[in-house]
Design a protein around this nucleic acid. Structure first.
Length: 516
RNA sequence: GGCGCCGUAGCUCAGCGGUAGAGCAGGGGAAUCAUAAUCCCUUGGUCGGUGGUUCAAAUCCGCCCGGCGCUACCA
């Protein structure tokens, strides 16, 4: 009781070589909304993001730029910090795999695996594409006219044979299946479940976890010819960030196992199969849940380098507004599914849900208060059944939304809140405070008070998704900074009649397309 | 090929044994506090096809058609 319940949520670490696009922003946004929600709900939160900076491709890009890998990654990892800033992400830490703390952590994890006999030295042979940094199976290759073998990606491959350490993944199939069975919440969303389970059931092969063909990575302890291969290195960041290898560190004891690893569906397997296997093999606890979300398309088209149609977060924010973009991404599609971004649907959401429904509700209420109640919170009289009904729907929101957020159902959370926004608009029309103004000013004051309370609830609950806009809305209700958490919901922080209110200003402008 | 998912109103989806729902879009009306925003009413579907189980099927089973995902060491 004494200590707040903790919540540890992570994004994947992003590959520094990539230019940040909407996919990165989307993953981190989902985590940000969760982190903010949990903080407002009184939990002690650790929200981690960062960059993955090792690997052959990075070394090559650095060389091409005439820089050392270290200088190069210092520079490009900045892109992701800037993205976080531009999107108003509230991460508590930003980890880089080139940091000393991470090297120590990886090496200790390695030692534990080695000690337990989970890692052994063998050799790896196969068709390797340098450009892709990947091995391909014989059957995937095609023969080019010049006799070279070509990977599906179009990259040239060569036969490579190298010594490599292997992780005994083959021993972990049954234990993973049992783990999935005992922890049904671990694999999410449901649609990924079958895929992962059938993958594991089909039989696991040992996993090559070291490389000797390049050296830009974490050196394998006691065998400096090897560096650890991508996934072992990358995944370990999640424990590094909370203090591993010091398992007794207060932060480690507090935050591990993580409550949630948020990932894109392309890297589901690494997080849902390899990572829990690595951890269990090292005698550590697996995370509690991994959620693999879907991808966005742009106006119905898959985003690709060749089409040059990647959605660029900075440009979207500049065009539509930050909170509008945040809202759209979390409201438009059932979280977990793929979704399509289009100008049309974006404008539809920002004008319909934000400007017309919520923005206008706040504006009509605040402006009536401003004009008719002496620019201060009105003094309510006794509540009627209609008043109580609206208030109770606002008061009941948190209980409704908590379980939805616990399963990352952002769209349903917002839908539930907007239900109350709709109730509010209906109530205004039914009560017609503009008519009461002449016939029963005291009743008008009560109606406007009930509405202001409703707006207060909505604004507090929407903060995780649209922090700036809701701060503005709460400012206009003169809600003190210390009364904006979920503990102020219900009767915990009711508006005080007589409180001076500032002049209202629209929070969500309508988007109007320029006439052609 | 194997395993799995999906196909419900124009669009996005919910319903998953008791003879169809929501939001948006479309049509009509009311109101005028408000960012010409809001509110009410309303058109619209033989629930992909087909055979079966059942007193009763979008809802369970078989087959067919259509779409999609996974099938390992690229993030």
């Amino acid at each position: 009781m004494a200590e707040a319940e903790r919540y540890y949520v992570t994004t994947p670490i992003y590959y520094v070589n990539d230019a940040p696009h909407i996919g990165h922003a989307y993953t981190t946004l989902a985590c940000d909304a969760l982190a903010r929600f949990m903080r407002l709900d009184g939990r002690s939160v650790h929200f981690l993001t960062g960059t993955d900076e090792h690997g052959q491709k990075v070394a090559k890009s650095a060389a091409a730029a005439g820089m050392s890998p270290k200088d190069f990654t210092d520079k490009v990892s900045q892109n992701f910090r800037e993205l976080a800033k531009a999107m108003n992400f509230s991460n508590d830490d930003f980890i880089r795999t080139t940091e000393e703390r991470h090297k120590k952590s990886c090496q200790e994890l390695w030692r534990r695996l080695k000690e337990r006999g989970e890692v052994y030295l063998g050799s790896y042979a196969g068709w390797y594409a340098v450009r892709d940094e990947a091995y391909y199976g014989e059957e995937e290759l095609t023969l080019a006219p010049n006799g070279k073998r070509i990977a599906p990606s179009g990259a040239e491959v060569e036969w490579v044979e190298e010594p490599s350490y292997f992780f005994k993944l083959s021993q972990w199939g049954d234990k993973l299946l049992k783990f999935y069975e005992d922890n049904p919440q671990f694999l999410a969303p449901e649609s990924r479940r079958n895929e992962i389970i059938s993958f594991v059931k089909s039989g696991l092969r040992d996993l090559s976890v070291s490389r000797t063909t390049f050296n830009w990575g974490v050196p394998v302890p006691d065998d400096p010819d090897h560096v650890m291969y991508v996934w072992l290195d990358a995944l370990t960041n999640y424990i590094t960030a909370v203090g591993f290898p010091d398992d007794n560190a207060p932060s480690y004891r507090k935050f591990w196992p993580a409550d949630l690893h948020m990932v894109g569906k392309d890297i589901a397997r690494f997080h849902m199969v390899y990572w829990p296997a690595f951890l269990m093999a090292a005698g550590l606890e697996p995370p509690r849940r991994v959620f693999a979300h879907g991808w966005w398309t742009n106006e119905g088209q898959k985003m690709s380098k060749s089409l040059g149609n990647a959605l660029e977060p900075h440009a979207m924010v500049a065009k539509y507004g930050l909170d509008q973009v945040r809202y759209f991404l979390l409201r438009e599609i059932p979280f977990g599914n793929d979704g399509d971004f289009s100008h049309r649907s974006m404008v539809h959401r920002m004008n319909g849900d934000l400007a017309n429904d919520l923005g206008n509700l706040a504006q009509r209420v605040l402006s009536m208060i401003n004009k008719n109640c002496g620019e201060q919170v009105p003094q309510p009289g006794a509540f009627t059944d209609a008043d109580k009904k609206l208030l109770s729907s606002a008061h009941g929101l948190l209980a409704k939304v908590r379980p939805l957020m616990a399963e990352q159902a952002f769209h349903r959370t917002l839908e539930a809140i907007w239900q109350v926004v709709g109730d509010g608009n209906r109530y205004v029309d039914e009560q017609a405070p503009w008519a009461l103004k002449k016939t029963d000013p005291a009743r008008m004051a009560t109606v406007l008070y009930v509405l202001a309370e409703t707006v207060r609830h909505v604004a507090i609950l929407v903060q995780p998704v649209m922090p700036h806009s809701m701060a503005k809305m709460l400012d206009q209700l003169a809600v003190p900074d210390d009364a904006r958490t979920f503990s102020a919901l219900g009767d915990g922080g009711t508006l005080k009649p007589g409180t001076k209110l500032p002049k209202p200003e629209g929070v969500f402008p309508r988007y109007v397309d320029e006439a052609a």
